[in-house]
């Protein structure tokens, strides 16, 4: 049999993986290796595969992902800092047939938006909250966030986070899991191919639960911030596994009874 050449393989019928059609052609402004990009790709794939493009409303936060509406081709509404769950509540109550999600970082969700997050989850609003936790304020220059690890250096904690003075990191997923309004609370990562595939399955479950009006779904993504952490992308992914995962263990925290 003749040797198969490169040009024989790259044919449309042999396609194994391609960027989702819902991703626009704009080049993302994220730093090289940023987990936001991967999370966007997975979200777009799920929206495409579940055929949700026409009935999705996303709520974008303030933070690095503020320009998310430039990258995924669905309807978006920009919220004031931390207020995405409140806005999502309004959208979902006015248009219950829409699929509503918020996409927030840790400065947005765990700091300024703590009240909105907790009360939205407590009311059991029928929305999906995607929480990107990289332990730092990435956009404003790497300041300490409520989720910064003990001893972790940031631009406002140059000697490392001192727990006696600044308190311990908040585990938002564990907090909202205690509330009766939440239906599905889980923690994932996007630094490896396996992690990305698990995150995708979790998103699909969240879509199903929202279609069944089961309550708030909360998916935390433990992510990296190569620029804020002052590391190369590969080093930051390694640091993530060694330091973030022990404090923020991956896996389901709350799953609904079938």
């Amino acid at each position: 049999m003749a040797e198969i050449t490169f040009n024989d393989i790259i044919k449309p019928e042999n396609l194994a993986y391609k960027r989702s059609k819902l991703m626009t052609d704009n080049v993302m402004h994220y730093c090289p290796g940023c987990g936001h990009g991967t999370a966007h790709q997975v979200l777009a794939e799920v929206l495409e595969e579940e055929n949700l493009q026409e009935r999705t409303v996303g709520i974008t936060p303030v933070g690095c992902s503020v320009l998310m509406y430039n990258y995924i081709d669905v309807d978006f509404q920009e919220a004031a800092h931390g207020r995405a769950p409140a806005l999502a509540t309004a959208v979902k109550r006015l248009m219950p047939e829409k699929f509503v999600f918020t996409y927030q970082g840790d400065g947005d969700l765990a700091a300024i938006g703590t009240a909105e997050t907790i009360h939205t989850c407590n009311r059991g609003e029928n929305i999906l909250i995607i929480f990107i936790n990289n332990g730092i304020y990435g956009m404003t220059g790497g300041q300490m966030a409520p989720t910064t690890l003990p001893g972790m250096k940031s631009s406002t904690s140059p000697y490392g986070r001192d727990v006696s003075m600044m308190g311990s990191p908040i585990k938002m997923a564990d907090i909202v899991a205690m509330l009766p309004g939440t239906c599905y609370v889980t923690r994932h990562s996007v630094n490896t191919a396996g992690g990305v595939r698990k995150f995708k399955r979790a998103l699909k479950k969240a879509v199903q639960y929202q279609n069944e009006n089961r309550g708030t779904c909360f998916i935390e993504v433990v992510s990296n911030c190569p620029s804020g952490w002052k590391m190369t992308p590969v080093e930051s992914n390694k640091w993530l596994e060694e330091n973030m995962f022990p404090y923020y263990p991956l896996g389901d925290i709350k799953v609904p009874a079938e």
Binding site: I9, L15, S20, P32, G33
Partner: peptide, 26 residues
């Protein structure tokens, strides 16, 4: 390129979605 098995792990983790993967059975 001869080593590629078309597993698409590279494309899945790519934050910018720049990789397209094809595979065939031989």
């Amino acid at each position: 390129p001869d080593a590629c098995i078309g597993c698409a792990n590279c494309a899945v983790v790519c934050p910018d979605g720049v990789i397209t993967v094809y595979k065939v059975k031989v």
